[in-house]
Nucleic acid binder design. Structure first.
Lengths: 161, 161
DNA sequence: CTTTTATAGTTGCACTCAAAACTATATAGA
DNA sequence: TCTATATAGTTTTGAGTGCAACTATAAAAG
C-alpha cells in the first residue's frame, strides 16, 4: 500500500520536496553507485582502497606529485592523503624522494610494481566505464561532460561569495 | 614546473588514465561538492546531519514510512537509518507508532515540529539548487535528468548479472 | 503445536574519517 | 640575526560508518 493513497489526509501548507526532481539527491545517488561499482574492481581484485586508488590515479596521470598537490587535486584531506601514501609505499607501489630544495616536501612516483598494477587496472577501469556509458549516445556523452563542467564552474563561483 | 615537461623521460607502455575524461572521477567530484554545499544549509543552520536530512526528506515525501523502506529508498545501511531515526525522535522531529499487524515494524511520521523545520528548510534547499542549475539552459537541465536516469537503469542492469 | 527459517530493527566492534594538534622546516619581518 | 609566521606532512582524537551479531517477532515447515 502506498501512503499517498490516503487522499483524505488534510495536508498542512508545506513545501513539497520531490526527491526524484532534486538534483543533489539524484546526483549523489548516481555517483555513489558508480563509485561503488568501480571500487569492486580495484578493491576486491587488487586490494586498493578508494583513497589509494585516487592517489595512484593522479600520480599515474602526472608522473610526479607531492602529497600537497594530490590533496588539492582530489580535494581529500591531507591526513587522508598521508595515510593512503603510507599504505601505498608499504606495499611498494609508490616511492618517495625528499626534495632537495625543501626538506618538508616529498616527491611521489610510481614504482615498477605500481606501474605494473596500473597497467592491469586502468584498462579494466576503462572497460567498466565503457559498459556504463554504453547506454548513452555520443551526443549525450558529450553533453554530460559539458554539463558537469558547467555545474562545477558555477559551484566555484558560488563558493567564492 | 610541470612534471609533464620532462619529455625525455622514457615512458613504459602504460595505459593512460585521463581523469578529466573519466566519468566516475568527474561524477564523484561533482556530487561531493553539491552534497557539501547543500549540507551547509541543513547542517550549519539546522543542526541536521546528512543521514538525518535524507530520512526527513523521504518521510516528508511519502508521509509515512518504516525504517526498512527508508533504508531501501536511500540505500543507507539499516544501522545508519536506525541511528538517524533515533536522533530525530529524540529531537522531537519525527514520531514512531508501532504497527498493529507486526510488532517489529514502526511507522515513522513527521511531528508538527518536524513539519515546521522542513517548511523552512525545503525552500532554502530549492533555492540553493536553483542557484547551482541557473547556469544550465532548460534543455541542458532536462537532458541532465534524462542522462542520469539512463545511467541508473544501466547500472541496475549491470548489477543484475 | 513445535521447530525452523525469515525479517525489522538495535547494538557492539573494528575501522575510517575529518578536524585539530603537533613536528619539522622554510620564509618574512623587526 | 633573532623572532614570528607560514607551510608540508604526521599523529591524535572524537565522531560516524558498515558489518556482523543479536533481540524480538512473524511466517513456514514438519
Amino acid at each position: 500500500m502506498n501512503a499517498e493513497d490516503h487522499a483524505a489526509k488534510p495536508r498542512p501548507a508545506r513545501p513539497e520536496l520531490d526527491l526524484n526532481q532534486f538534483l543533489p539527491y539524484r546526483l549523489s545517488n548516481l555517483a555513489d553507485r558508480v563509485s561503488q561499482g568501480l571500487s569492486t574492481i580495484y578493491s576486491a581484485r587488487f586490494g586498493i582502497s578508494i583513497p589509494e586508488w585516487r592517489v595512484l590515479a593522479w600520480i599515474s596521470h602526472k608522473d610526479v606529485l607531492t602529497a600537497k598537490q594530490i590533496s588539492e587535486f582530489t580535494r581529500m584531506d591531507k591526513a587522508r592523503v598521508s595515510r593512503a601514501v603510507n599504505a601505498l609505499e608499504r606495499r611498494g607501489l609508490i616511492s618517495r624522494t625528499p626534495s632537495d630544495d625543501d626538506q618538508r616536501v616529498q616527491f611521489l612516483r610510481l614504482t615498477g610494481q605500481g606501474e605494473t598494477l596500473l597497467a592491469e587496472l586502468i584498462p579494466e577501469a576503462h572497460a567498466w566505464e565503457a559498459r556504463v556509458v554504453a547506454t548513452l549516445s555520443a551526443a549525450e556523452y558529450r553533453d554530460l561532460f559539458n554539463i558537469i563542467a558547467k555545474l562545477e564552474r558555477q559551484l566555484t563561483r558560488i563558493d567564492q561569495r
